[in-house]
């Protein structure tokens, strides 16, 4: 199954990131309630950080999503970010690819800790960032220099009133200042109240509009390819180290390989390139 990726464009792949307590789980719950009655099937990959010292992880954040045991149209798999510190589980990548073959939408939920936004962005078609009103995290976000990744910004808990509106306008202001090169389109800023179910339909529309624009501009294929490139290079680097990549001719050479073989499944390519690097490593000894 891993060797046969689905036809393009296939399932919508959507990332959901934001600080702990921003209400991502409640939002996912609201999204499931919005999408299921329309007949759309939903898979959720929830990534939680694992402890650096113990390796253990508490995967409790999905607690507010009630799928109902009887609904096969909802699938939730939580996993720990095992390999990269604070980053995304490598297995999240394969999970997204597999689930995209079976569900209409695949959501990837992660705790935003700075560097992980770029990781999630590489995994999905649309990245949604969830901000909490009044916490100043819009500002933190801007400082961290990752403002260019999200395609849709949400200010959740819009029932907080004035604080929510202020955060939204701060975000609108700073997005325009930022470099929007990566995300291709103008980012939307939406006010939601997940607990009251408000703004959810608007969020779905914004996600769909973003993806449609990518398709219309013929940019979705490029985004997926770039994502695949990042995942493959990352995976190879973790397996064979910088030295291994060097033996192959460096990142640039590898990247060209990935680009050339864009019709081959990522997993087949990973296996093949792995063999080639091993071969190169053997020769170097």
């Amino acid at each position: 199954m891993l060797d046969r990726e689905t036809p393009f464009p296939g399932a919508a792949r959507i990332g959901l990131t934001g600080a702990p307590g921003a209400g991502k789980s409640t939002l996912l719950d609201a999204l499931v309630r919005e999408l299921r009655p329309k007949g759309e099937t939903v898979a959720i990959v929830a990534v939680d950080p694992s402890s650096r010292t113990t390796g253990g992880a508490l995967l409790g954040d999905r607690v507010r999503v009630r799928s109902g045991a009887s609904d096969p149209g909802v699938f939730i798999r939580s996993m720990a970010a095992r390999d990269q510190l604070g980053g995304l589980a490598e297995s999240a990548w394969s999970a997204v690819v597999i689930l995209a073959a079976a569900f209409d939408r695949v959501f990837v939920e992660t705790v935003g800790v700075g560097q992980s936004e770029s990781d999630v962005a590489a995994l999905v078609d649309t990245l949604v960032y969830v901000a909490t009103p009044g916490t100043g995290d819009a500002l933190q976000f801007m400082k961290a220099g990752i403002l260019e990744y999200p395609d849709v910004f949400i200010v959740n808990k819009a029932d907080f009133g004035a604080a929510a509106k202020r955060t939204a306008s701060e975000l609108r202001g700073s997005i325009n200042l930022g470099d929007r090169g990566v995300s291709h389109t103008e980012a939307a800023v939406i006010l939601t109240s997940a607990s009251a179910g408000e703004g959810i339909d608007e969020l779905v529309s914004a996600i769909d509009a973003h993806r449609q624009k990518l398709i219309d501009d013929d940019a979705l294929r490029e985004r997926r390819l770039r994502g695949r490139e990042i995942q493959l290079l990352g995976a190879l680097e973790r397996r064979y180290g910088a030295f291994g990549i060097e033996q192959f001719g460096g990142r640039r050479a590898l990247r060209e390989h990935v680009r050339q073989d864009d019709s081959v499944s990522a997993f087949a390519l990973l296996a093949r390139l792995g063999l080639e690097i091993e071969e190169a490593l053997r020769k170097s000894h």
């Binding site: 694992s50 113990t54 253990g56 607690v63 939580s78």
Partner: peptide, 24 residues
């Protein structure tokens, strides 16, 4: 505790139907 000894723990909170636990 399970997390602190290095396990990955899925905890879904209270009031679940037996079928939900099995499916999870």
């Amino acid at each position: 505790k399970a997390r602190n000894v290095g396990m990955e723990v899925v905890y879904d909170g209270i009031r679940l139907e037996p079928g939900e636990i099995a499916a999870s």
